[in-house]
Design a protein around this nucleic acid. Structure first.
Lengths: 332, 332
DNA sequence: ATCGCCAGTGATATCGATAACAATCGCCTG
DNA sequence: CAGGCGATTGTTATCGATATCACTGGCGAT
């Protein structure tokens, strides 16, 4: 930067200002500086700037998996909003594991992000403590935690699942099974099962028709295996609610393969409104949440909180509940 | 860190050493320091460490899209390898746009990563210049650039596509069409088309049966629309090669919907061996490359280059060609 | 007994930018 | 015309760690 400054005949401070968005520098000077930057091929070093300004321009984002288009959409939404403000996402994947989340939180805090967005409201006590002590805005997304750390953008997975079951009931289904993961690691999956159970009970339907299969994320393959188990174990089952669209898709394809008509023999519903559900044949009944919106809103709330901090206002923790929608398609 | 040092009765330098992996500190001292760290809830500030050590511990990774499980797998592979060495991935998505890539390269360099991995061998001249001038190891992946910048881990998309077409020919298909994106933005997609054209020509098959549809990434929806166009335009077509599995899937489902048997009426093949292709019904013929391996190898090569730099050896640019495999399944 | 080496530790300078405040200049207001 | 204000630029201190070199004490080899 000193070289650029020398070449442009100004001080480094002026160069620094010229390279910021809000820098108060005269047009003439800025032009000279930018020319010098270009000629020298100079690239600003933010890691130095971060140290003195105490703002790194990073927003840490933790998702269970980037290999899941729902979370990928959310991550994109966040990125979109915050990069407009010159911030950058530091992405991490927890693999649905709160121990790994704890470790990632620590790693991320080591980079001193200006804010952090975590998926889920479940954390290890130590992770929780670190998040609270970090002194930066925190947004928990994709869930409605009982005790939010700070801000929240999410919805009740249990309610959504319950609404789906009730819709199936209206449609005439009475022997409804559930296909989900075998571990509690995926807390959103566990909530969906909970909502299913609640609905079944409320409606007075036969209980117990639950297949637990494999570790999250439940794959297409596991969906296919699970539907076979479900039908073998309870031959009178007339519908299956799957913990995600991917398992629902696997289940439907397995039914095709075995000549079981969907929805003729059994209705099958998923969760998440993945692309595959919109274009599969039959199209898959599911619960849609706007994943990108979750990301956009989480990003906006974070930006708002950062703005509050900068203006030395006390930020007010916000909770934003995003809507979900049961979408009935051809598979039920 | 000064507080921790005071509490442990040592200098900050010793604390710093105790918190590194290779730190030469006596067991007794380390224990005292870690205890102090725990009691004070101290979290190391890497953004400061980066400044003095001139190593940020970042590896920048640019992929066309994180919402594509092939690239997500690659990104995971990279992450896996490098986080073992205490490095962290800085992920960016170019949206299949080399202008956006240029911008991202600049943004990333601003963070002074220790190395950078970019998808594709096509770059704007400025991006290319910046990459070369950065003075850090560069790995280009998922392609075999004519003029590599530095290291390469990839395969020839054209060759792979050509092999697929030849396999279809062996199987008896003679009127083979191609479904791909309408723009040249996706250079791997363009290469696949090229390979298709080359094969068609070599085999003396009827040419021209190419449907170009939409901007990358070509979606399931576009695959469904394109197959209709293809069949309407050339009713005698007996097979379709799609630029990716997603479009192949969309095409197959559209055929189901219209009562066109796959592969009875038309055989359909994809590219990429996505999960959906393994579990769809019919299972989809495709070209498989081990995406995770691309990531793992790219990570390893990068680590090797970083090691070379540290030991002041001159790193030798490496090119690693990963194998692809044509997998014949039920859809052809 | 002396020397040299090594493990463990500390003192100091430094990484490259920006915050905070100061200085300068021109122009407007009363 | 004095005072003051806003726009522009510079000076200096500082952010929080680590590189580098220096120092100490113990121990084995000669």
């Amino acid at each position: 930067m000193a070289e650029v400054a020398a070449r442009a005949g100004v001080s480094t401070m002026t160069v620094s200002r010229a390279l910021k968005r809000d820098g108060a520098v005269s047009e003439e000077t800025r032009r000279r500086i930018l020319a010098a930057v270009e000629e020298l091929g100079y690239v600003l070093d933010l890691s130095a700037g971060a140290l003195s300004s105490k703002r790194t321009g990073f927003v840490a984002v933790l998702v269970p998996s980037i290999n899941n288009s729902n979370f990928a959409d959310t991550a994109r939404g966040i990125t979109e909003v915050i990069e407009d403000q010159g911030l950058q996402v530091l992405l991490g994947a927890t693999d649905y594991d709160i121990e790994k989340e704890e470790h990632l939180v620590q790693t991320m805090l080591t980079r001193r992000p200006d804010g952090i967005i975590v998926t889920d409201g479940r954390h290890t006590p130590r992770a929780r403590r670190m998040l609270q002590a970090a002194g930066i805005p925190v947004v928990e997304i994709w869930d409605l935690p009982a005790e939010p750390i700070d801000h929240v953008v999410g919805f009740s997975n249990a309610e959504a699942s319950r609404a789906l079951v009730r819709r199936l009931y209206q449609k005439g289904y009475r022997k409804i099974g559930f296909i989900g993961g075998a571990s509690r690691r995926d807390s959103r999956g566990a909530d969906r099962r909970l909502g299913y159970l609640r609905a079944i009970e409320e409606l007075g339907l036969p209980v117990g028709r639950t297949i637990a299969f494999g570790d999250p994320p439940i794959s297409m393959e596991q969906g296919g295996q699970a539907i076979v188990h479900l039908i073998e174990q309870w031959p009178d089952v007339d519908a299956a609610v799957c913990v995600s669209d991917l398992s629902a898709f696997g289940a439907i394809m397995e039914c095709h393969r075995r000549g079981w008509a969907v929805p003729g023999r059994i209705g099958i519903a998923g969760f998440g409104d993945f692309e595959v559900s919109r274009w599969a044949w039959p199209r898959i009944t599911t619960v849609a949440v706007n994943c990108r919106t979750i990301g956009l809103e989480a990003g906006r709330i974070l930006l708002g909180a950062l703005d509050d901090v900068q203006r030395k206002r006390t930020p007010m923790p916000a909770t934003l509940i995003v809507p979900f929608e049961v979408i009935e398609r051809e598979s039920t």
